[in-house]
């Protein structure tokens, strides 16, 4: 079987998240879905335009169709944003490693997301909240450029805060309208919140610059490198470790990542 050949899938639903983010509910036509774990990605294609590696934002344990939350930034994401329910796309995957959930039983979880970076974390957060009793306290720190740019509004405003011992802390870079919440960049906001590193795993995802400063903030808060987990995005073409593109030193993000601990990242060249 040629791993580069996708399966045809149908867009079942399109949920607008923000002005430039939509969530696509996608069902592979033959298999219905495939097994995947939180943190893994899939190659989504619009035929005639191309493919893009996109993190799977649905949670496999919930047994629904695949969901991809996509920000409109380039050719493929632009074509997806033009698509309508019923349109065909291609899907292949899952690719990459996943969050090491098995090591996290009994620990507190701190999720730090920025913008569309909440997409891979959403798969993980929902997975963890579905097995809430396995973990200690859960805190979700999430920021976006403006209140309108916050994704998954229903989950961050309604669903997640209702779960026992879950704190959702929202911030925006710049307030507008009737925003009453915090106004701060995610790393600053995080430092102000001052979560304890004691028995806690921190998981962060966002734009490269946010990840960089968040890693520094977490270190400042006393988190050890092996307590910090992040998920990276690099340009990928094949997703299967053959096209030679997404390397950071001798590691490939599509095979050895996208999930890395800060400890692992520090062993790699700072080129991502």
């Amino acid at each position: 079987m040629n791993p580069l050949v996708p399966e045809i899938a149908t867009i079942k639903d399109i949920i607008p998240e923000t002005g430039d983010v939509k969530t696509f509910v996608v069902e592979p036509d033959n298999t219905g879905s495939f097994a995947y774990r939180p943190g893994q990605c899939a190659m989504v294609s619009v035929f005639g335009v191309g493919e893009a590696m996109i993190s799977i934002t649905s949670t496999a344990a919930r047994r629904g169709p695949l969901e991809f939350s996509v920000k409109r930034v380039g050719r493929v994401s632009g074509a997806l944003h033009e698509a309508e329910p019923g349109h065909k796309v291609g899907v292949r995957g899952p690719y990459g490693n996943w969050f090491p959930l098995e090591d996290w039983a009994g620990r507190n979880l701190l999720f730090v997301g920025g913008g569309i970076g909440l997409a891979p974390l959403r798969a993980l957060i929902n997975h963890c909240l579905d097995e809430r009793d396995r973990y200690g306290r859960v805190d979700i720190v999430y920021g976006a450029r403006s209140p309108q740019d916050l994704c998954f509004k229903r989950e961050i405003m309604e669903n997640w805060p209702r779960v026992k011992d879950v704190g959702v802390h929202l911030t925006v870079d710049a307030a507008n309208g009737d925003w009453q919440g915090a106004v701060a960049l995610v790393p600053h906001f995080l430092e102000r919140l001052g979560p304890s590193p004691e028995g806690t795993v921190a998981v962060t995802c966002g734009p490269p610059i946010m990840i960089k400063y968040t890693l520094a903030s977490l270190t400042k808060l006393g988190f050890a490198d092996d307590q910090i987990v992040t998920t990276l995005e690099l340009k990928m073409q094949c997703g299967v470790g053959k096209c030679g593109r997404c390397n950071i030193g001798a590691k490939y993000v599509c095979l050895d990542g996208p999930v890395f601990t800060y400890e692992q990242l520090k062993q790699l060249p700072q080129e991502y």
């Binding site: 580069l4 294609s45 035929f47 005639g48 493919e51 340009k235 073409q237 593109r245």
Partner: peptide
């Protein structure tokens, strides 16, 4: 890996690239 198409027909191709090209890792 890239697509090329005319009307309702097209092909997905795989072709050489070079890590020396300045856009090799440029992301959308």
């Amino acid at each position: 890996i890239f697509d090329t198409s005319r009307g309702t027909r097209g092909r997905r191709l795989r072709g050489w690239d070079s890590c020396q090209f300045k856009d090799f890792l440029l992301m959308a």
